[in-house]
Computed example of a mutant assay.
Amino acid sequence: MNKAFVKESDQDDEDPVPEGQRLPAGTKNYITVQGYQRLRAELAHLMTEERPAVVQIVSWAASNGDRSENGDYLYGKKRLREIDRRMRFLTKRLEIAEVVDPASQPNKDQVFFGATVHYVDSAGEEHTVTIVGVDEAEPLLGKISWISPVARALTKAREGDTVTLRTPAGLDELDILSVSYPS
């Protein structure tokens, strides 16, 4: 049977969301202004630069004849599927995004979305985290998702408060040293 009429994989049409980027049912996709701009820039880059370049390579490779053993063609088609999947994901996320400007937070002494919190845990280790959207989270850089256990424990607390964090190892006490928001 000709490969043109055979679906290569059932997974190609699915848009799997990475585990850390899943939103709880019924919640909004909160995101900072910078995060929203970054996602839009990535989508624009994929649409205007990366995808057209790959399409050009696939077109060139297809013109070379036999496609069954043409590495440029096969890799290019696979890369196009990856780009299209990412573009669909970004489009969906941007459509449901609820942009929040942390600088406009009226209660700057309390922890909410966009806050940068400096705290010390029960082991005496100091941490600084910024509470951001699910699509912006980079835990190794101190940017944690607003739905993460640490962010949920810190939310609504104030400087000087002690909050309890439930971890797999048990309960941990976090003493909040400072709360700040971008200007």
Rank of each mutant, 00 (worst) to 15 (best):
M1L: 10
M1P: 13
M1T: 14
V6L: 15
E8Q: 14
E8F: 15
S9D: 12
D10N: 15
D10L: 09
Q11V: 07
E19D: 14
G20P: 01
G20C: 03
G26I: 05
T27K: 13
T32Y: 02
V33K: 11
V33N: 14
A41C: 03
A44H: 13
T48Q: 15
P52D: 11
A53H: 02
V54S: 09
I57R: 09
A61I: 01
G65L: 04
R67S: 11
R67H: 05
E69Y: 10
N70Y: 01
G71P: 01
Y73D: 04
K78Q: 09
L80W: 01
R86K: 06
R88N: 02
L90R: 01
A97H: 00
P102R: 15
S104C: 07
Q105I: 12
N107E: 05
D109G: 10
V111I: 02
F113N: 09
F113W: 03
V117E: 01
H118P: 14
Y119Q: 01
A123Y: 07
E126K: 12
V129K: 15
V132N: 04
G133D: 09
D135T: 08
L140P: 00
G142P: 07
W146M: 06
L154Y: 12
L154K: 13
K156G: 04
R158A: 14
T162N: 08
T162R: 13
V163M: 02
V163N: 14
L165K: 00
R166C: 03
A169W: 10
L171W: 12
D175R: 11
D175Y: 15
S180I: 03
S183F: 13
